[in-house]
């Protein structure tokens, strides 16, 4: 562990400020609590909000997992995991089940999370109304007055223009019937998983907002009676592990149109293959590992 910096990098006063914001976020699910985000040694937009939240909730005994696009080995996930190994001295793991704190960008793990786990999201634009109304002063009023008509109009315009709601990720949700919330740019496939046993914390560093979902909080994806919400994914099975229920990445194999679909959650895919599952283009796990 690097002794030049405080445990988990942030100074204690910053952590206290963030911890207070987290508690208020938990007390008012879906409401974006302003916090004085600090400059971190990684760029804004690269997970500084998530990193600050993780740094404020980690204990020395924790095991941490970091994923980006569902994968542990994407470059930014590697970089953030290294940061916490160095500054907090915590153990890290790629196994979802072994992690106490999971920091994620753009995915919810396939495996159900437990009550003793914490999921921390990196959020680029926390305001679900931002693309309809660029002014913070206006959107804050709209949340205060529970004035969400603009959002429904937007979704309905989608339907009349395209025959479907054209939002496929960062799909807005309503929390406990009160606040409309941005679930971060997870695919809408993940939206139903937002009701879970673990604590979910959302950190937006550049935009200086923290929000939270306590376990089992009611989270409803916005929709219409005649156009109900649908959690969709590619109509394939994973070509490596054969899973038919996981969210898939499409991989281009050659310039002749060849492609395959693989689980975006690398740990999920790995453990399925280790358990003997083989997809259409996969080989048994032992051969691959050799």
């Amino acid at each position: 562990m690097n002794q030049e910096y405080n445990f988990a990098y942030l100074d204690e006063q910053t952590k206290r400020m963030i911890r207070r914001a987290i508690l208020k976020g938990l007390a008012i699910p879906g409401y974006q609590v302003p916090f004085a985000s600090r400059e971190m040694p990684m760029p804004y937009g690269w997970g500084t909000g998530g990193v600050q939240v993780s740094a404020s909730v980690l204990t020395p005994e924790d095991t941490m997992k970091v994923i980006d696009q569902g994968a542990d080995d994407t470059t930014n996930a590697v970089s953030i995991r290294k940061f916490f190994e160095k500054t907090a001295g915590v153990a890290t793991s790629e196994e979802t089940a072994k992690a106490d704190v999971i920091q994620t960008r753009h995915r919810i793990p396939e495996e159900d999370l437990r009550e003793d786990q914490i999921l921390v999201y990196q959020v680029p634009i926390p305001e679900p109304l931002r693309f309809l109304e660029p002014r913070e002063t206006e959107t804050r009023k709209m949340h205060a007055l529970e004035e969400y008509g603009l959002m429904h109009v937007k979704l309905y315009e989608d339907i009349s223009k395209n025959g479907a709601i054209s939002t496929s990720y960062a799909y807005p949700v309503k929390v406990e019937g009160r606040y409309v919330m941005d679930p971060s740019p997870i695919p809408k496939f993940d939206n139903p998983k937002l009701e879970m046993a673990a604590i979910q914390l959302f950190g937006a560093g550049r935009e200086q907002r923290i929000y939270a979902l306590p376990p089992y909080t009611k989270v409803v994806s916005l929709d219409f009676e005649d156009y109900p919400f649908e959690a969709s994914k590619a109509d394939h099975a994973c070509d490596l592990c054969g899973s038919e229920t996981s969210y898939l990445d499409e991989v281009i194999m050659d310039d002749a149109g060849g492609r395959m679909f693989v689980c975006s959650d690398t740990d999920f895919c790995h453990s399925r293959r280790a358990a003997g599952h083989v997809g259409a283009q996969g080989v048994p796990f032992e051969e691959d590992a050799a």
Binding site: N6, F7, K15, L23, V57, T59, E61, I199
Partner: peptide
């Protein structure tokens, strides 16, 4: 730093 981190975990758990 370590004591406060452990304490906050308990505080956060009960609030959540």
């Amino acid at each position: 730093p370590q004591d406060a981190a452990r304490a906050f975990r308990a505080v956060m758990n009960v609030m959540a």
